[in-house]
Amino acid sequence: MSKLRITLPLLAALTLLGGCTATRVTPLKTAADQMCIEENPKVQVSDFVPVLQEGFARHGIQTQLYSKIPRADCPYVVTYTARRSWDMAPYLSTAEITILGPRRQTLAKASYHLRGKGGLSLMKWQGTKSKIDPVIDELLANAQLSSTIAQQADSTHEPRKSLDERVHDLQQQKLGYEDYQRAYRQLLLEHQSAQ
């Protein structure tokens, strides 16, 4: 009986201290190696965007931050939310990262959540980087990346090519079927929006 009295409080304390983090990730499969991050002014976690940008760069994806994203310039967009809780000091308790494709469809999504706002766990005061880096790694680890045609055309500053010329240039690239189809659809969208 005395062992049971000691064991129950110990188990209750261990339950409160550990197992507080929940993550859910739908990984990115294919995308461009350049994306735009849509700035979220409601997020009060000051280092969230730098951690996000460093994490994406670690996986070969360069990012730019925009308050208003020019659609033609940014076929792939990253959106985010992050919230803090307070227990003697503010700490990150919830975050969500979403990657949108050319038609603004969801390509990948990841969320981080401290159950019960972290309870008595000391890990709840860890920095943003230590909490979000593993989530970003799981989100992007196996992504197949390719350059986008629009960004290549913008970087060369050449006169605007016709649709036929751009399709011909696309065919010269050695893209896989899915990457080619995605780039071709993006060309058609850009051509329609330019008219």
Results as ranks from 00 to 15, higher is better:
Leu107Phe: 00
Asp164Ser: 14
Ala32Glu: 12
His59Lys: 08
Glu96Asn: 08
Gln151Leu: 12
Ile61Phe: 01
Leu175Gly: 02
Thr156Asp: 10
Ser67Pro: 08
Ala183Phe: 14
Tyr180Met: 04
Arg58Gly: 15
Arg5Ala: 13
Trp86Thr: 08
Leu170Gln: 04
Ser130Glu: 08
Pro41Ala: 00
Leu92Val: 01
Glu165Leu: 13
Ile37Asp: 04
Cys74His: 03
Ser46Asp: 09
Arg166Met: 15
Lys42Val: 04
Tyr177Phe: 13
Leu122Ala: 06
Pro70Asp: 03
Arg115His: 03
Val49Lys: 07
Met88Asp: 06
Gly19Leu: 01
Thr106Asp: 03
Thr98Asn: 14
Gly176Cys: 06
Leu145Ile: 02
Lys161Tyr: 02
His157Phe: 15
Gln186Leu: 10
Arg24Thr: 14
Pro102Arg: 14
Leu92Ser: 08
Thr26Gly: 07
Gly18Gln: 15
Lys68Arg: 14
Tyr177Asn: 10
Asp87Tyr: 09
Ala110Arg: 03
Asp33Val: 00
Asp47Arg: 06
Gln186Arg: 11
Glu178Trp: 13
Asp87Leu: 13
Lys129Ala: 15
Val25Ala: 03
Arg84Trp: 11
Glu39Ile: 01
Met88Leu: 15
Ser147Glu: 06
His157Gly: 12
Asp73Gln: 07
Val51Ile: 03
Met123Phe: 15
Arg115Trp: 07
Trp125Lys: 03
Gln126Lys: 08
Ile99Lys: 15
Val78Leu: 05
Ser46Lys: 09
Gln126Ser: 13
Leu65Val: 07
Gly101Trp: 01
Glu138Gly: 10
Gln44Lys: 15
Asp164Phe: 14
Thr98Ala: 12
Arg5Thr: 13
Ala194Phe: 11
Ile132Pro: 06
Met123Lys: 12
Gln152Lys: 05
Leu107Cys: 07
Leu188Trp: 06
Asp33Arg: 02
Thr156Met: 14
Asp33Lys: 00
Gly118Pro: 04
Thr156Arg: 08
Tyr91Pro: 08
Thr7Gly: 12
Leu175Thr: 02
Asp154Thr: 15
Gln173Tyr: 01
Ser85Leu: 02
Thr63Trp: 05
Gln186Asn: 12
Leu52Tyr: 07
Ala31His: 03
Leu14Gln: 02
Pro70Thr: 04
Thr94His: 10
Trp125Met: 05
Ser85Tyr: 07
Ser46Met: 07
Leu28Cys: 02
Ser162Val: 12
Leu139Asp: 00
Lys129Leu: 05
Lys124Thr: 05
Thr26Ile: 12
Leu4Asp: 14
Gln181Ser: 08
Gln172Trp: 10
Gly55His: 01
Tyr184Ser: 04
Ser155Asn: 12
Thr26Met: 10
